[in-house]
Amino acid sequence: MKTKIEKALEEATISTFEDICFMYPVPELKDIQKNLKLEAAAEVKYRGEFTGKLLIETRGGLFSAIAANILSNDSPGSRQKKDALGEIANIICGNIVPYLGLGGRGYKIESPKSLNKDELLKQKSQAKPLAKVTLNFNQGRVDVKFFVDDNSAAKEKKG
């Protein structure tokens, strides 16, 4: 059974992609999408009653497609692609922190940061996310992971 945060993360990710990127996920993960190579990632840190971060990873051309759709530009530049992915992460994170308790009071969400390969490798060795969602698009897939620095401290309950 999905937790409240897992449900919230899924809903926020879907609505952000639909409303902001005009991209609509397809339900089934095809084999080819499972093995796609990671192309880009960004993280957004938050501070408040709890601290942690939201990490977003794209595969299969989605990095470019997100910026292209947002900016109505078929060939977005590298900076634009990074900014677009970061903005998506920022919006999703803003929608999730209220589920950590106190209804989002006092949370500060930092500016998004694009991650390079070394930073990505470091991420891999880190703790398990509190919630994770994978969405599939015709072009590829996106994985969104929500971390709380100390998972045991989260007041989130199952159900």
Binding site: N90, I91, G94, N95, G103, G104, R105, Y107
Partner: peptide, 8 residues
Amino acid sequence: ISSESDPC
């Protein structure tokens, strides 16, 4: 227009 969730 913001992703701010703090009700205050």
